[in-house]
């Protein structure tokens, strides 16, 4: 038996949490086209509807400089802004750049963290919609074969 009881329970909890999501969130429009775009510029324009995006230092991306495992790279995004509506996390060099997009309610803290899969070294881009305007930040994360440490 490889899977421990706890892990199974935890998997169950995650599923349960998803089922408990408030209805209006589930009802939000699924950005089908954005998730299927293969070029990051297309993904961004499909998320923003072509609106201007400005780089903004108030967005912080927490990610390793070099990933310990490209299959599960921990990434966190926080935005020190008011009225944050959505946070999307994109990976420039992934075949499908959009990893996830979060719709936030007014009362929630504008901070999300997740684990993403990265094929190779790439910029990780955070796209934040706040008070109707779009902002972005990026951080390069290296994915390496590993080995040969001194």
């Amino acid at each position: 038996m490889n899977i421990k009881r706890r892990q199974i329970i935890r998997g169950g909890l995650a599923a349960a949490a998803a089922a408990l999501l408030p209805q209006p969130l589930l009802a939000a429009v699924w950005p089908q086209k954005a998730f299927e775009s293969k070029k990051v510029a297309d993904t961004i324009s499909s998320l923003t509807g072509g609106a201007a995006v400005s780089e903004d230092g108030r967005i912080a991306i927490k990610a390793p400089e070099i990933a310990e495992n490209g299959a599960v790279v921990p990434v966190g995004v926080s935005a020190d802004m008011d009225k944050v509506e959505t946070i999307a996390i994109l990976v420039d060099n992934n075949p499908l750049p959009l990893t996830s997009s979060y719709e936030l309610q007014g009362a929630s803290s504008p901070e999300v963290s997740t684990r993403i899969k990265m094929l190779k070294t790439s910029d990780v881009i955070a796209l934040v919609k706040a008070d109707g305007k779009y902002y972005s930040a990026s951080k390069n994360v290296k994915v390496t074969i590993g080995g040969c440490g001194g």
Partner: peptide, 19 residues
Amino acid sequence: EDVCDNLFNPDPYRQQGGD
């Protein structure tokens, strides 16, 4: 290429310190 980048990436935070 991978090992070489670990040695000569201009950003030290992206190096691993071996040869």
